[in-house]
């Protein structure tokens, strides 16, 4: 239907439509910005409650120039990297061991359900006493969050590989290791990556929450420290940075990896074709 419509249009018109379609996602951001500016010009709220738009830009610029912003971002990203690496590695390895062993997986699954329910920030009060305030605490909380999500998805992925493939490799003389490497690993990979992607989302949240109280550096600490001085410009600026980093990680790191594996090994589902 849309094919017929577009073929009637001139190519210039089509190009214009394409540009408009591309720019459309910017509209909500522009609207929020406009509302913010309008509210600020009319109501003149105290800057501690709602800063002016230029103030937020200025404070971000200032923090960036002083190198403070880079320190906080680097601290947060370093913790995230450590936590996610630990969580993903331990989750995948244990996930394979458990996924390949039905009796073990049945035994521990109630434990996993329970510990998944308290994964992340709930551990903070207990673990502060063990590890103190700082990187170790944040890394523990991220590991804890990422591990359970990756682990559950790995177990699921391993268990869902159709047995006929395993038997196929075995019938051709493949050993246990060969089966795992060439059948179960690629079969489970899409699930592992889905787990990793959602684990990263939860991990980033856990990190920010952990840094609010359990750190002396990092983006979470930057915005929570600003509360004391009612510096809402730093808070809003920090929130924007947090959002941009989350989007960037998801879009440029995880989405491409996930799509490539799913296209290569998994269920082919291309959402873009629907448009």
């Amino acid at each position: 239907m849309s094919m017929a419509k577009t073929s009637n249009r001139s190519s210039a018109r089509r190009a214009l439509d394409q540009v408009a379609w591309r720019l459309l996602p910017l509209v909500p951001f522009a609207l929020v910005l406009a509302a913010w500016i309008a509210y600020w010009t009319i109501m003149r709220p105290p800057p501690a409650t709602l800063p002016a738009v230029p103030d937020v830009v200025a404070v971000l610029w200032e923090l960036a120039a002083k190198g403070e912003l880079a320190t906080h971002v680097a601290a947060s990203l370093w913790r995230l990297l450590l936590g996610v690496l630990l969580g993903a590695t331990s989750g995948v390895i244990l996930g394979f061991i458990v996924g390949l062993n039905r009796s073990v997986s049945e035994f521990i699954s109630p434990l996993v359900v329970f510990f998944n329910a308290i994964s992340g920030i709930v551990w903070l009060p207990l673990v502060i006493g063990w590890l103190g305030i700082g990187t170790a605490l944040a890394v523990f909380l991220i590991w804890n969050t990422v591990f359970f999500i990756v682990f559950q998805n790995t177990v699921l992925g391993v268990q869902l590989v159709p047995q006929i493939y395993e038997q196929g490799v075995q019938a051709l003389g493949g050993g246990r290791w060969e089966t795992i490497r060439s059948v179960i690993l690629p079969g489970a990979l899409p699930y592992i990556l889905t787990g990793l992607r959602s684990g990263l989302g939860f991990g980033w949240r856990a990190l920010i929450a952990a840094e609010l109280v359990g750190a002396t550096t990092g983006l979470g600490q930057m915005i929570f420290g600003a509360t004391e001085y009612h510096r809402s410009d730093i808070i809003i600026g920090g929130c924007l940075i947090i959002g941009v980093i989350a989007i960037a990680m998801d879009r440029w790191l995880l989405l491409p990896i996930e799509q490539r594996t799913i296209e290569r090994w998994g269920l082919v589902f291309d959402a873009r074709k629907e448009e």
């Binding site: 989302g201 929450a209 989350a246 989007i247």
Partner: peptide, 29 residues
């Protein structure tokens, strides 16, 4: 169709800023 396309990126962005990150601002407000 247009509203969905326009809002998808915005919602993803909001999802990236976890609720807890707004806590300092909410405490001020």
């Amino acid at each position: 169709r247009y509203a969905a396309h326009a809002l998808e990126g915005f919602l993803r962005f909001l999802q990236g800023i976890s609720g807890i990150a707004w806590l300092p601002l909410a405490i001020i407000w």
